[in-house]
């Protein structure tokens, strides 16, 4: 079946609500409006207002309520409209969701799923376009996943709901109109995946940069690794690819400093140094708040040409 990324998200959400009575969805405009990105369109009518709950604009309270509901035996899906808004809920995500299990000496689990959208590319300017995946990926106690493909858009939610601990699922509006074949099987949220085999260089990325990396790989005979799971990182898949290609470029839409790209590069240094023929390169967003003007936004983001240039510079 050919579907868009958006339709895949919707199918995954619908299946999750249908599969388990304990699952419910809450967030801003998820019900009557039909979801900011129309992902939850029709859900209110199908599952009713008890299980599809419009919230006030209170990220801190409704994300925290998700933590509490998870403690109380439910399987909440909390939608936070954009990752920039998730900062309003950061206290509950870090100080409660991530820490409760450890602070209680292992007595409680928080099976909470947070869905949020990330990334630029639609001229939404500085407060709606950033990528803070690495901030969340820095926190022990939570799992962080990024859906870059149709199958992951469809399946990651169900996989996240099966986890006993908090999972943040990143979705990418820049990919919402992409079309692809939806396969029937379930997806894991444990492993990175090689999306394209290649010989000359490993391009490691996640989220909305995946199509850009795939495009660059055509020109480079590159192997593309989609990280998928940002915490815990699947270092093994990265190292296996680097061992083969002997070169690596990490592509990350967040700011370069203290980014996931930095973490991936450090792990290759620590564990794959002698497999390398050249230093690890990075292509990240420029360290500037995301500008509105289209040409500046494009210039701030990783692009296929930049990836090719970075790979060429290390001899690929």
């Amino acid at each position: 079946m050919t579907v868009t990324y958006r339709e895949a998200l919707r199918l995954g959400l619908r299946e999750a609500l249908a599969a388990d009575e304990r699952v419910f969805l809450m967030g801003e405009d998820v019900g009557k409006y039909g979801g900011t990105y129309a992902v939850s369109k029709g859900m209110l009518e199908e599952f009713g207002p008890e299980r599809v709950r419009d919230t006030p604009l209170s990220e801190l309270a409704f994300v925290g309520a998700g933590v509490g509901a998870a403690l109380g035996g439910m399987r909440p899906i909390v939608e936070v409209m954009t990752v920039n808004f998730s900062l309003l809920a950061l206290d509950q995500i870090v100080n409660n969701a991530a820490l409760l299990r450890h602070m209680s000496g292992g007595q409680v689990s928080v099976p909470l799923v947070i869905r949020t959208s990330s990334g630029a590319g639609r001229q939404l300017a500085a407060q709606h376009s950033h990528s803070f995946e690495s901030w969340y990926a820095a926190i022990p106690g939570i799992k962080v996943v990024a859906a870059a493909t149709i199958d992951d858009a469809h399946g990651m939610l169900g996989a996240a709901l099966a986890e006993p601990d908090p999972v943040i699922v990143f979705e990418y509006p820049a990919l919402f109109e992409t079309k692809g074949e939806l396969s029937a099987g379930k997806v894991d949220i444990a492993k990175a995946r090689v999306r394209r085999p290649g010989r000359k260089v490993t391009l490691i990325t996640y989220g909305a940069s995946l199509p850009k990396a795939l495009k660059a790989a055509e020109e480079l005979d590159g192997e593309v690794v989609d990280l998928r799971v940002l915490r815990p990182l699947d270092t093994q898949t990265i190292l296996e690819s680097v061992r083969k290609t002997r070169r690596a470029v990490v592509i990350d839409e967040s700011w370069r400093s203290v980014s996931l790209a930095a973490e991936v590069a450090a792990r290759i240094m620590e564990q794959g140094f002698y497999d390398l023929d050249a230093p690890v390169a990075r292509v990240c967003s420029e360290e500037v708040p995301m500008p509105y003007a289209r040409h500046l936004e494009e210039a701030a983001l990783p692009q296929p040409e930049k990836i090719v240039a970075a790979a060429r510079a290390i001899g690929a």
Binding site: A65, V67, G68, A69, L71, G72, N96, S104
Partner: peptide, 24 residues
């Protein structure tokens, strides 16, 4: 359920526990 050392950090949690009771 704790033992919460972030001032007011327990209120959203309690609200959610109550939501679970309502739904169940």
């Amino acid at each position: 359920y704790g033992g919460n050392a972030i001032v007011a950090g327990g209120l959203p949690l309690a609200t959610g526990l109550a939501l679970a009771s309502l739904l169940k």
